[in-house]
Design a protein around this nucleic acid. Structure first.
Lengths: 208, 208
DNA sequence: TTGGTTTCCGAACACGTGTTTTATAAACTA
DNA sequence: TAGTTTATAAAACACGTGTTCGGAAACCAA
């Protein structure tokens, strides 16, 4: 009384879990799976779940009800939109307390975009970032940072011009090179003491 | 021995649920909340959960363990990355069957970005879209469309030039105006029969 | 004060649910 | 063929968990 294929029951179970989570928003129990896949013993389900976990498809916390997690699902992360970024004013830099308390709005993004880092978002005000290919109304994802590595795109405060700019950062001997994303535009060079790194840009989102 | 504020306990509970779900991937039980919020009776938690549900913050399925769902969570949607978009070639337009079968990769995005529409994604190849403030490597979110309204940003195939372009669409008398996002650049005008709308752009994503 | 509402406590009940055990049958290996 | 591994079945155990109830404490309004 065994299935012909190698393990088509396991495929059914995995699909059932997917559908169940999509539908109900939480994971099924062993007995939910039993009924949903027309099996007749919890031990069968138990066995297949163990195999699925060993093979890396799911994760379970032992003894915890409804704790099946599908490992190909990415978590969504709540990203606080802390304010705006404009040419003439420094950007809001989050303290540990502003994180959700002072958020104007809370975006919900996946690790696809946040890359697992603790980020915050800023809305771009005006056209001053156009040389970084950033439009009015775009949302930039920032990672808090005071320093930068070569090649990072940073939000830099230029003390002499009293303005913030988004450019690619390169450390050179005695000076810093800030390169626009738009390669048709020329880089600018500043003294290290005339610049203040306010954050690292890890993404841009434009909703139309 | 009652809390001073009006119902700060309820706030604590809601925050605890958020953190718990973020951390573990499934919802807490009544007793998890009890311990996590330093309360001493499940009935207290039960009461606050009822209020939270009545006020629309959460949803619970009666008698089901760990069934608390946070209603401000947006669903994540699997978006197929169907190919690339480059200057000299038409963009891949999805049939109903390519939807996930021919996907090069599957992005996972929230309704925040997809706006609830059925979208697909294309990776931008080259710098030809720079006048739309789109960089090499950016990902554009497309909604299938053959027509456009005034103001839409569309992917248009220009028959005479044999190239695809991303521009804002405006219908004028006898001609069509295609306006770059970069306002420093001039719009172009084409005959209605020289243009073919291949899709509507609803978003742009740049990962750095 | 008075009454009414909300919040809290402690305890108990009922059952959903993960787990284990034993047994049987099918498939694979040598 | 015999031996091993895998898949299935039925039943039972142990406890996690939603729910309920009676009563007390804090707050509010008249």
């Amino acid at each position: 009384m065994r299935k012909p294929g190698k393990s088509q029951t396991r495929q059914r179970i995995l699909k059932f879990i997917h559908d169940f989570v999509d539908d109900r928003g939480y994971a099924p129990t062993v007995r939910d799976i039993l009924r949903g896949c027309s099996l007749s013993s919890t031990a069968v389900v138990q066995h297949h779940l163990n195999v699925l976990e060993r093979e890396g498809y799911i994760h379970r916390d032992p003894e915890v009800f409804r704790s099946i997690q599908l490992l190909d699902r990415k978590n969504t992360i709540r990203v606080p939109l802390l304010g705006s970024i404009a040419a003439g004013e420094p950007i809001p830099v989050p303290s540990s307390e502003t994180w959700t308390s002072e958020a104007i709005e809370v975006l919900q993004l996946t690790e696809e975009l946040t890359q697992g880092k603790e980020v915050y978002a800023l809305k771009v005000n005006g056209l001053s970032m156009m040389d970084a290919l950033i439009d009015d109304g775009d949302i930039v994802l920032m990672e808090p940072a005071n320093t930068a590595e070569d090649g990072d795109v940073v939000a830099a405060w230029l003390k002499d011009k009293q303005e913030v700019t988004l450019k690619r950062f390169f450390q050179e001997t005695g000076r810093i090179c800030l390169q626009p994303a738009n390669s048709q535009m020329k880089p600018i060079y500043v003294n290290p003491e005339d610049i203040e790194i306010q954050g690292r840009v890890i993404g841009v989102i434009r909703k139309l």
